[in-house]
Every structure is written in C-alpha cells, then in structure tokens.
C-alpha cells in the first residue's frame, strides 16, 4: 500500500514538474509570452496612432474621411483578423501579467521594514503591474466609448452614409465637465503608457535574450524616445478636440 502511495506521489510530482516546465508553464516562458505580446502591442500603438491622427483635421471633409477610415478598419477582413489577434494579445498580456505579479508577491511573504529600491532600480520597472492595471482600465473605458458604439451602439450617419464615429469622438471630449474628465483620464492613461513603455520596450528585448554591447544601447535609446513621443502624440488628439470646441 505504502509503495503505491509513494508511486502516486512521484507521479504527482512529475506531473507538477512537467506542467511547470517548457514553453507553457515555466517562469521564463511566461516572460517570453509577455515579451512577444508586448512587442505586438507596441506595433499596434504605431498603427493606431497614425490612423487617429486624422482627427487633427476636424473640418467636415476631415470628419467624413475619418468615418471612411473607421468603416475600413471595422470591415476589411485582414484587419478584422488582426484585430481579433490584438484583443487576444491584450487579454493574454493582462492575464499573464497579473499571474506573474501574484506569483512575485508570494515569493516574498514578509516585507522589508527598511527598503530603498530607488538606489538600485527605477520606479517604472517595479510598478509594471500598477501601470498595466491603469492601462487596462483605460482600454475598457476607451473601447466602451468608441469600439462598442461603432459596432452596436447608437450612432448617427454622415453625408456619405457611413457611421459617424467622428462626431462620437468630438462629443466625448467636448461634452462640458464630462468631456473635461474624459480628457484628464486620457492624459493619465497616456502617462501610464509612457512609464510602462519606458521599462517594457527594452525589457522585451532582454527577455528574448537580445543583450549586445553594440545594439542594447540603441534599443534603450529608441525605447526611451518611443515611450515619450508616442504617448505624447496620442495625448495631443483629445486635447486638440477639446480646444477645437467653439
């Protein structure tokens, strides 16, 4: 009987080891997935920014052009497939990140009474979970305001017969106090994106094993520039829309 129990315990242990190893469960594998999904989300940031900078033209023609673009982005098959892949990546990056943060918390059950982390690391690197949570909350708000409305919500029709997303955007950020709050939330979220990228951009390369005396300084410089320029360019859009209110 006892030998059966020992055998059972061994099998359980092997099963546990198997589940935690390889490209599915190990600590390093979880980081590969964070890195790959993170890099994909970085590429999305560029495309999304370039498309939505069209909102800096708020003339009648500009708005109609934006609505044509919005229709294209929600109906062209290749982009639809990419968008499902994108939603999955956002969810996976968030779930994997929360799981990693929970495991990391468990790895140090007792905190230090005296702790001076600023002497050995930057704030953003230690607060990726907090920054990510802020960004996720913003993504939910942002998608409920525009993505949901575009697909299933109440939305007007413009002169070309397209769904009038431009007006939805303008109303969201120009609507009195509520609009002002939305602009502020947008700016807070972009600050979180900036700090998240400042650590995340170069971290993604290190996780994939890319650390080279010649290229790593370039990656870090590009990452720092990206983390400032891209969120700043995004932030210009709602501020511009708010300022354009007559």
């Amino acid at each position: 009987m006892s030998s059966v129990l020992v055998k059972f315990a061994e099998t359980q242990n092997t099963a546990k080891k198997m589940a935690n190893s390889g490209l599915l469960g190990s600590s390093i594998a979880k980081k590969y997935w964070m890195s790959l999904t993170g890099l994909f989300l970085i590429s999305f940031l560029i495309v999304h920014l370039l498309g939505n900078l069209q909102l800096l033209d708020l003339s009648k023609e500009g708005q109609e052009q934006f609505n044509i673009y919005a229709k294209f982005m929600t109906s062209f098959p290749l982009i639809k497939i990419t968008s499902y892949f994108l939603y999955a990546s956002i969810l996976f990056h968030a779930v994997d990140g929360i799981y990693l943060a929970m495991q990391n918390r468990k790895a140090r059950p007792e905190r230090y009474a005296s702790y001076k982390p600023n002497r050995n690391s930057i704030w953003a690197s230690r607060n990726m979970g907090l920054l990510g949570t802020i960004i996720l909350a913003f993504i939910i708000l942002h998608m409920s305001q525009f993505w949901y409305t575009m697909h299933w919500g109440e939305i007007g029709i413009d002169a070309n017969g397209n769904k009038d997303l431009a007006t939805v955007v303008i109303q969201t950020y120009q609507d009195g106090t509520a609009g002002l709050i939305m602009v502020l939330l947008y700016l807070i979220a972009m600050a979180a994106v900036a700090f998240h990228l400042y650590h995340g951009f170069q971290s993604a390369f290190q996780t994939l094993g890319i650390n080279h005396s010649r290229y790593t300084p370039i990656i870090k410089t590009v990452g720092a520039a990206f983390s400032i320029i891209v969120p700043l360019a995004y932030a210009i859009i709602p501020v511009f829309v708010l300022m354009a209110k007559n």
């Binding site: 190893s21 600590s27 980081k31 990391n104 790895a107 140090r108 690391s121 690197s125 996780t207």
Partner: peptide
C-alpha cells in the same frame, strides 16, 4: 536548473535590474 528554480518558489524575473 530553471525547473528547480521555479520549484523552489523564487519569483519571476521582470528585468528590474536591482
């Protein structure tokens, strides 16, 4: 070695650099 590291209950690396 990575399997054993995980089994011991160490946390995951997040490239903090501390």
């Amino acid at each position: 070695m990575v399997n054993q590291m995980d089994l011991e209950g160490f946390g995951n690396c997040s490239n903090v650099g501390a």
